[in-house]
């Protein structure tokens, strides 16, 4: 199976270290899809809902973000026809129960706590890529 149309991944993350590590982890996990980065919630909303918005295979969304936080980004995405079905994976440091509940209540597709151990992080990235870019099916017509 080939990754669908090589659609890009959107990483919403303000910490440059984490951006670098995530990119490295995805590269190590042999995920070829291009990765675009939004540095805060407002930028993410712009890239997803703005005038020349792209379609992303999956959005990796951190919760603690400058300007507009992750939960608010998710709320807005789910409120728009164009993005209400876009796969959104919460990728965060938080293990707080209330963050998980808030995310799932807003129909996040998955919730993953970023492992501190880099090997585990690479493994998580590999599984994420395999699942969301290869295995997972989305309704192409309505979605596109």
């Amino acid at each position: 199976m080939m990754p669908k149309k090589n659609k890009p991944i959107l990483l919403v993350e303000d910490n440059p270290d984490d951006v670098e590590l995530t990119q490295l982890a995805f590269r190590r996990a042999n995920i070829a899809n291009p990765m675009k980065v939004a540095r805060d919630g407002a930028e993410a909303l712009d890239m997803l809902l703005g005038e020349d918005a792209e379609k992303f295979a999956v959005v990796l969304l951190d919760l603690k973000l400058p300007k507009v936080d992750g939960i608010e980004v998710l709320r807005r995405l789910r409120g728009e026809t164009r993005t209400r079905l876009t796969p959104v994976v919460i990728l965060t440091s938080s293990r707080e129960e209330r963050d998980m509940i808030a995310s799932y209540e807003l129909n996040a597709n998955s919730y993953i706590q970023k492992p501190v151990d880099f090997e585990q992080f690479v493994e998580a990235a590999r599984q994420l890529g395999l699942y969301w870019l290869v295995l997972n099916q989305v309704p192409e017509t309505e979605y596109d």
Partner: peptide
Amino acid sequence: SHDLRAPLRA
């Protein structure tokens, strides 16, 4: 929970 972990990951 959120902020102390990020530097460790780096």
